[in-house]
Design a protein around this nucleic acid. Structure first.
Lengths: 154, 154
DNA sequence: AATCAATAGTTACGATTGCAACCAATATAG
DNA sequence: CTATATTGGTTGCAATCGTAACTATTGATT
């Protein structure tokens, strides 16, 4: 192993990245195949659907750690599909309030069906104790994220 | 919140991805600036350096969950920098045994210096208890990864 | 009110990515 | 011992991404 104090196997960014990639790819394969959705599109759909209200593109980006250009493009293509509509803000015309259409809501429901099944599968793979530990750890990271703003992008 | 049973805030792929992105980007900013290293390059360097032996490109990819083309390109550019050399396998000439040069080892040591400091910073941000929980959870994911092969790429 | 700064979002463009097709070498089957 | 499949690795190309520069709108300063 390492001759100095550093252990790659303990290095958090490495481990988190690996785990995230593993977990995300298996799910992405599902919705990509069945809905022709890209990852940014799914993430945008999910952010809007789960909030249950309209959001601005900036809010979506902040919530899901996506670069604003990524959000912009995902919004455009969801709009093309008629899954999402924009509404101008009356007071400040820079803002666009984004909301799912009924078709978008329907798609969201179907996707969350898939997601729930996948989450259950993960739970059975990890076991409830380790899943709880992971959740605790992630909460701590989320807390840290709120304190220090990310160096943008993603 | 969600009207059905699904909660995006609890959805593991979403949370893991967000956390990984957050943690990785802050570190990437450091080595990118000081060493002009890309993320796949750093990951390749780290895999080789931490193993302390030579590895094949396939092994590196499996270890760090990187697509083989990503590894191939990272290897190429590290080779250009003279941080890495290839050696042909005598028995099976398809294999290339990759190893760090002394300059590569030196770079690795400097990078792990940065990495250790960053890890310490993360520890102080999360607190040792939550860090331990996160580690336990990640171990469970790592265990699951070993059982079921990833659907390639990354 | 005229200028300057800040913010929401888009876009041009160069860089990075991943799929698929490929080459080369070895293993397996007939 | 040829023919076919498999495996390690590379590459062409189309798609995706992120930086920086841009438009449009509002806020702040004087």
């Amino acid at each position: 192993m390492a001759r100095d104090g550093f252990e790659l196997e303990n290095f958090l960014p490495y481990r988190l990245n690996r785990a995230a990639e593993f977990v995300a790819l298996r799910f992405a394969a599902q919705y990509r195949e069945r809905y022709q959705l890209t990852r940014p599109e799914w993430r945008t759909l999910a952010a809007l659907g789960s909030s249950g209200r309209s959001m601005t593109a900036t809010e979506i980006g902040a919530h899901s750690t996506m670069h604003k250009t990524k959000v912009s493009r995902a919004v455009f293509s969801l709009e093309q599909r008629r899954w999402l509509k924009r509404e101008e803000d009356g007071r400040d015309r820079r803002f666009e309030h984004l909301a799912l259409t009924p078709a978008g809501e329907q798609a969201y429901r179907e996707l969350t069906e898939l997601a729930s099944r996948y989450q259950a599968e993960l739970l059975s793979m990890l076991g409830s104790e380790d899943m709880a530990a992971l959740s605790t750890g992630l909460h701590a990271v989320e807390r840290a994220m709120k304190k220090s703003a990310a160096p943008e992008s993603g």
